[in-house]
Amino acid sequence: MQQDIVFSFFLIFAGAMVLATIALYTRQPVLIAYIALGAIAGPFGMGWIEHPDALTDMAHIGIIFLLFLLGLDMQPSALFAVLKKAMLVALASSAIFFAAGFGLTLAFGFSEMDAIIVGLAFMFSSTIIGLKLLPTTVLHHKHVGELMIGLLLIQDMLAIFTLILLGVLEGNSSMPVWQPFVALPLLAVGCYLIVKMVLLPLIMRFDRYHEYLFILAIGWCLTVAEGAKLVGLTHEIGAFIAGVTLATSPIAQFIAISLKPLRDFFLVMFFFTLGAGVNFGLLGDVWLPALVLAAAVLIIKPISFRYLLGNLSERPQLAWDVGFRLGQISEFSLLVAFVALQSQLLSEQGSLLIQATAIVTFVISSYIVVFSYPNPIAVSDKLRRD
């Protein structure tokens, strides 16, 4: 069926309205409704949207805005402190997750290269699930929010290194492995100087024009995101740097409030495209290993974070909180699978194994958080926190 962008938007948001209403009445997380809608309407379901990949780039903008808003509420000094504390935990946990993914995949008879790629995909937790289900007040002002941001940012850097490594293995990468690690501090310093010398004077001069401030914020976010991509980082890291460097602005909170509806608009599309990408016809080949790997993720990640953070004198309750919120694999895991498949380093069954594991862990992890920890979409009034 041929459809235009208006039809696609109609189907996504009208369908989301219906399924989200049903989800709320039945006390289910609304994220599950968006994923289910994608599975129903996508090419492997009813086929109403045959090419969801055309919507993927737009859906990705929601993640960019999410990281920009996080940066707006974090002062640089607080960021450096939390990164220093989270570094050891992030590296140690990544080693544990890689070993688990590699060993289990080999045990199911997959090739050694497939096992390596699955192990790499296991290392990362979902930025969007972890932060979307974290209340704004906790995210901005509580230690759990700072720890999660630090862990996720370090994982993002490891994901960039992984993608570069895959390019090196394929033989087509022109980027030195060290480039993103040099580019990151240079980009941060450059953005800080631009904000101080250009943006803050403009904001002080034209702070009465709210439309201008809104456009300036979006323009700055996307400019730095694109600049980060050009120097070997990711759009998400660039957007976060854009937010952190603008956090000293007196209108940072105004910008954050203004952009939240725009962010949520694109995040609905993200979860829709995630559900639409599931090929049900091939699930029969990998359903058992996918369930076992998903169970391993859901068990190993919370336990690992609990004891690693506990060794840093974090309270057990906080350590479990972080562990369960990061108890899934990541959007980056799907990107690793896509790049490895395109590079012929990963089999089609291995790619589907990662996709199926991601979907299962996204769904179950969301359920655990929504029904057990404070979050903005809790079905219980006791746990709902905006």
Score class of each variant (00 low, 15 high):
Phe97Cys: 09
Ala41Met: 14
Leu66Arg: 07
Leu55His: 02
Met113Ser: 08
Asp57Pro: 07
Ser111Lys: 09
Phe44Trp: 13
Ser111Met: 08
Ala115Glu: 11
Met74Asp: 13
Met46Asn: 09
Trp48His: 13
Leu67Ile: 02
Pro43Phe: 06
Ala107Thr: 11
Leu70Thr: 11
Trp48Thr: 13
Gly47Ala: 06
Leu69Trp: 04
Gln75His: 13
Gly101Pro: 05
Val82Gln: 11
Met46Asp: 07
Ile96Asp: 01
Phe98Cys: 05
Asp73Pro: 06
Ala81Pro: 01
Ala39Gly: 08
Val82Gly: 05
Phe80Asp: 06
Met46Phe: 15
Met113Gly: 07
Leu55Gly: 04
Ala78Gln: 15
Phe65Lys: 06
Ala59Cys: 05
Gly109Ile: 14
Gly103Ser: 15
Ala99Thr: 13
Ile40Tyr: 06
Met58Arg: 06
Leu66Gln: 05
Ile63Cys: 09
Ser93Leu: 05
Thr56Cys: 07
Leu88Asn: 07
Ala92Ser: 08
Pro76Tyr: 06
Leu91Gln: 02
Ala95Ile: 05
Gly101Val: 04
Met58Cys: 09
Met87Asn: 12
Ile49Val: 09
Gly103Glu: 08
Pro43Asn: 09
Ile49Glu: 02
Lys84Asp: 00
Met113Cys: 06
Ala86Met: 01
Gly62Thr: 01
His60Lys: 15
Ile40Ala: 14
Leu79Gly: 01
Met74Thr: 14
Leu104Gln: 03
Met113Ile: 12
Glu112Tyr: 13
Ala107Met: 15
Pro52Ala: 06
Ala90Gly: 11
Lys84Leu: 00
Ser93Asn: 03
Ala41Ser: 14
Thr56Arg: 15
Ala39Pro: 07
Val82Thr: 15
Ile61Arg: 04
Phe98Asp: 04
Lys84Ala: 00
Phe65Ser: 01
Phe44Leu: 10
Ala39Thr: 14
Ala115Trp: 09
Phe110Ala: 10
Gly47Phe: 09
Gly47His: 10
Leu79Asn: 00
Pro52Asn: 00
Met46Gln: 14
Ala115Leu: 08
Ser94Gly: 03
Ser94Arg: 01
Thr105Gln: 02
Leu69Ala: 10
Gly45Glu: 09
Leu66Phe: 07
Glu50Val: 13
Ile40Leu: 14
Phe98Lys: 05
Lys84Met: 04
Ala54Asp: 13
Met46Pro: 03
Pro76His: 10
Ala86Lys: 00
Pro43Cys: 02
Phe44Asp: 10
Ala78Pro: 07
Met58Glu: 10
Thr105Cys: 08
Met87Pro: 02
Ile61Trp: 09
Ser77Arg: 15
Phe68Arg: 04
Met46Lys: 10
Pro76Gln: 12
Ala86Ser: 11
His60Pro: 03
Leu104Asn: 01
Met58Tyr: 15
Ile63Trp: 02
Thr56Asn: 14
Ser77Lys: 15
Ser111Thr: 12
Ser111His: 08
Phe68Tyr: 12
Phe80Pro: 00
Ile96Asn: 01
Met58Ile: 15
Ser111Glu: 13
Pro43Met: 01
Gly45Val: 11
Thr56Val: 09
Leu88Tyr: 05
Lys85Tyr: 08
